[in-house]
Amino acid sequence: MIEAILLSVITAATPLLIAAMGELVAERSGVLNLGVEGMMVVGAVAAFAVAKETGSPYAGILAAALIGALMAALFAILTVWFVTNQVATGLALTLFGLGVAGMIGEAYVGFPGVSLGAVAIPVLSDLPIVGRVLFDQDPLFYFSILLTAGVAWFLFYSRAGLRLRAVGDRPEAAHALGLHVNRVRTLAVLFGGVCAGIAGAQLTLVYTPQWVENITAGRGWIALALVVFASWRPFRVLAGAYLFGAVTIAQFHVQAIGVNVPSQLLSALPYLATILVLVLIASNRRFTRVNTPAALGQPFVPDR
């Protein structure tokens, strides 16, 4: 039973983790993209439609990544190159995405989708308990773990990651050193779009293999909260995503056992926790300096 519960927590956490990891990279470069929900939902419908038409869930994931990148490109052109307000543009992206996804998805409502099955890793999947939970999963779960490790390595151990953080912290200084601030930011935003798209694909290929309007149900916003909750550190995003997932699943188990707790209180906990974390990290100045992208949300126009 523990095993089964862990499995459902993982399924609930994976889309949050993937989307948040993409947003983390974008934010580290200094761009706040509030359009995660919009990119995610378009990815979800694209994955469903393409997987259904081609019969291949992998084609669906690819389509989701591409359309996520396309949405992100729209955002990047406006915010990075046209220096529009990031908050407003992100909101526009979410509205636009929800609308477009609903229109594309109209023809696909009410059909069972293609499910991305589990792929067992030989030997490892035979281990007791952890075997089934960690090594007999759908490929997107493996992807989410590799993604976390990859992003952590990239940000803190690679030259390109150092540059990206420099661009997010002090764009003027980075520019003076000859870095292409806006090019780096564009790439980071595109990466965020790809991740959000794939996170959407997880919803329609793994979580509930079907398409309905608003299938993301606010998960994009939770991913945004997670990035802050994790104070822009990849492995904390991982921990946070599983915490969110566990809370989601726990509320149903608590009920099924017969305990009466207002489900709204449980649902509100992650948001309250995020605010608390924001306060804690903001009040610790050294910590803030190390982790928060100082130029988050500020457009960069090279002074000439």
């Binding site: 919009g38 729209l74 509205l95 609903g102 229109m103």
Partner: peptide, 22 residues
């Protein structure tokens, strides 16, 4: 037509406003 068209319009309108502002 689907009611989703409203959200598409609102999104596009905001994009256009922001771009023309720049």
């Amino acid at each position: 037509l689907t009611d989703e068209i409203t959200r598409v319009f609102q999104g596009v309108l905001l994009f256009a406003v922001l771009a023309s502002d720049t």
